[in-house]
Design a protein around this nucleic acid. Sequence first.
DNA 1: GTCCATCTGTTAAATAACGAACAATTGTTG
DNA 2: CAACAATTGTTCGTTATTTAACAGATGGAC
Lengths: 216, 216
Amino acid sequence: MLPNYPGVSPLVTRRLPRYYRHLTELMKSGTERISSREFADMIGFTASQIRQDLNCFGGFGQQGYGYNVATLRAEIGRILSVDKSHPAIILGAGHLGVALANNMGFEQCGFRLAGIFDVNPAIVDQTIKGCVVRHTSELSAFCAEFHPQVCVLCTPPAVVPELVKNLVSYGVKSFWNFSQCDISTFYPNEIVVEDVQLSDSLMNLSFHLNEKLGGH
Amino acid sequence: MLPNYPGVSPLVTRRLPRYYRHLTELMKSGTERISSREFADMIGFTASQIRQDLNCFGGFGQQGYGYNVATLRAEIGRILSVDKSHPAIILGAGHLGVALANNMGFEQCGFRLAGIFDVNPAIVDQTIKGCVVRHTSELSAFCAEFHPQVCVLCTPPAVVPELVKNLVSYGVKSFWNFSQCDISTFYPNEIVVEDVQLSDSLMNLSFHLNEKLGGH
DNA sequence: GTCCATCTGTTAAATAACGAACAATTGTTG
DNA sequence: CAACAATTGTTCGTTATTTAACAGATGGAC
């Protein structure tokens, strides 16, 4: 039975990967220990917030000493379950799907790329990152055999609702959603959805840039 | 002088693109008016929050009627400044850079793709989305001539600090950061940074998936 | 070994965000 | 034209989040 953290706010857990990333950097640079103050200056948070965030999961530090970088990194990694290797599939082998297959370290994030699917015959049978691209029609059989836990959605939004419906029936539990389609409202409480709405992000940048330009 | 919204929380402004996206869909489907209640059901928020968010910027609705879809969409578009056309450049023409060049509607988000840069001679001089890929050494001259406002960072993290330093000196004001390098702490108050940390996002999914798997 | 500076874990205060409630206003119906 | 249903803008109480403060504990210097 895996640990569960029911009382912890999503804002806290969303900061954990950032802690993890900086701790990895610190370890690479040979730093053995760090205080919440130093860590806060490095990240741009307050020391108080860091201590409180970490204490949601346990007392990883030592009074008068600080935090051991390697230990803390391992603990956060365990909380995030990045040591797991859940099979993941990518749907849509366009530029974005290929970019993610090649650049994302799925293995460092708790997953393992198990398959890539597309409907374009020109792409099917090509090999990307060690995976042969399969036709989407093989999805059902593939899921029955390999039970992927995660689906990375890189398809046009129009086909997403039907796809998700099928995938849920095939037992896929979670989605990394790059399609401009809000699937989080489809099956609440049944699936886990992590949205990456790039256009939302770009519009947010537009807002803040124009605010800056107009604000002097 | 552009409008400025000093008192508005970043959480509110971050929801605006989502409103905008759904309003675009509604307009496409021919819906003329919508109430905060219907809109809330559609998005998955509360009606109260939507009304309160919108009222940070003005009374766009009408009592007893609701909101006019086209008008509200236009107002939010104006607030987000998506009608602008600030020149943007992409640094790093790997899979991700190319994916963004091809798939992101920069024009619909207030920007215009003005240039793509890379250090790889095999890529330089190729044409992507109407842009000839230039060598990064031409960056200085390009910025002096075309004054790009935004830089999309798709390079390895190691080269980012030096790149950002140069770009800031060339007058680039904002960054859409896909590199695994926290640049927000480098020049606070001087530049606008929108981070897209894909590995953070994937780790967050890992956390929630494992929480779900372990929690029954 | 003792003192002091350091730093965490934890509690408390302050701040921010959210959801519910309601008065005011509008369109609609008969 | 009057009554009613619908819906916003806004206020208020509640909850959540963040920051500050402090007691307790540790390591290091001398």
